[in-house]
Design a protein around this nucleic acid. Structure first.
Lengths: 231, 231
DNA sequence: ACCTGAACACCGTTCAAGT
DNA sequence: ACCTGAACACCGTTCAAGT
């Protein structure tokens, strides 16, 4: 029902020549471009969170009128999509030691994925949208390649990829949304204790007090990989 | 930084008596209440999606002024939190066959969880917020209880719970956001083919064409449970 | 205890126009 | 090809007031 963008971007062709118009660069701001818009959006999101991103504020930061943005970008949705994908860009090519076994490689890949998103917590809440940007696809491709080098049966490949993908996504979201302050954590636990006839088990296991997210992520991933390992 | 609600709700006490003021029920709409607000919000969200929920529209639907809502509810965030948690309510107590083994029970629990959310796709995009409502906690409790009855080592309990929780969350989100139409799927695949020097592996495995989400969910969960099984 | 309307300070986007 | 301001149709929420 809701139009979600057709995946066919770039209804205007990007300038192919990198040449600057002489005289332009003297006038303060460089000209608007998709790249600059995305960079500005990420800065704004880092500083103010999801609700802080406003077309008007973004334009201000870039020194342009609001409506100028719309030449380069379809709408606000588009900006969100671009910002999300940009977080997943590899600034440098992933440095996997060639000698690592496939499990080590997968763990490395997925930990980097999670870390990239947690560096920009707003990206996590943008995740539940169709997010098939180029960087997301490259990471899927890389994961895919690693798995098929590992001897995962062809019939299980897609399941393996989706399970791992799913695990990172879920873990990242859980991590970002349950990352309470110590005080909040204590308060939540007290609430459980107060209602302990309903929540006896998780009260006893102190589930909400555990904050070793990195460890939990790694261990859970280990379990999943145990299950996925070719026999 | 952003105030996310402290978990302590109900700064005004809910009416404990169920008695109706005589004469009230003749005037058309029943009086506003937290319950009615949540129910209205869910209806609106089902009909219009996340962006369709507006305090004004919600008030309209309930036959009240906008500002009346704010007596019962802190703000729009609060409405979202309540709506999300209400999706996770058990309308009837979960019917697990007592004879089922623990794996069967866990699968049953998690499939119901996923199905409950997918019945209201907007709920998926509300997930990346701190969502510790009572219904979410009961489901965690139930999962917890099932696992500890299964002989999962106490030291692994929290990891097991979080991994499974994480898996459902991720799977649900993935499912909801990659649920493309056949046309979109074909278009995405074609895009991969066009760029096949970058995405050779996922192009070949036709990852994006696979739409057996229920099967994938179940199989991946199987792998995870294999890893988690007490040895 | 519960409900209200007016007002404030914003939004995203269309449109017609400028260079 | 790129940028702009004015205008439209909305928002969420504060406040002072009503019953």
């Amino acid at each position: 029902m809701a139009a979600k963008g057709s995946g066919a971007r770039g209804k205007r062709s990007q300038r192919a020549s990198g040449s600057l118009q002489p005289g332009k660069e003297l006038s303060g701001e460089p000209p608007l471009s998709r790249q600059r818009i995305v960079a500005g959006a990420v800065e704004l999101l880092d500083a103010q969170g999801v609700d802080g991103l406003t077309m008007r504020r973004l334009a201000d930061r870039l020194g342009s009128g609001v409506m100028s943005l719309y030449w380069h970008v379809d709408n606000k949705e588009d900006v969100f999509d671009l910002a999300l994908d940009s977080v997943l860009e590899y600034r440098e090519p992933p440095q996997m030691v060639a000698s690592q076994d496939w499990r080590g490689k997968v763990v490395y890949l997925l930990e980097d994925w999670r870390a990239s998103m947690l560096r920009h917590p707003w990206s996590v809440s943008l995740l539940p949208r169709r997010a098939l940007g180029p960087n997301m696809l490259s990471r899927l491709e890389l994961l895919s390649k690693t798995l098929s080098g590992a001897g995962v049966a062809a019939a299980d490949m897609n399941v393996a990829i989706w399970s791992l993908w799913t695990y990172v996504m879920g873990a990242t979201i859980t991590r970002a949304s349950f990352d309470l302050s110590d005080d909040d954590r204590a308060a939540a636990q007290q609430r459980l204790t107060r209602l302990s006839e309903h929540y006896a088990t998780i009260e006893r296991s102190r589930l909400l007090l555990d904050d070793d997210w990195d460890g939990i992520f790694r261990k859970g991933l280990g379990f999943l990989l145990d299950g996925l390992s070719p026999r």
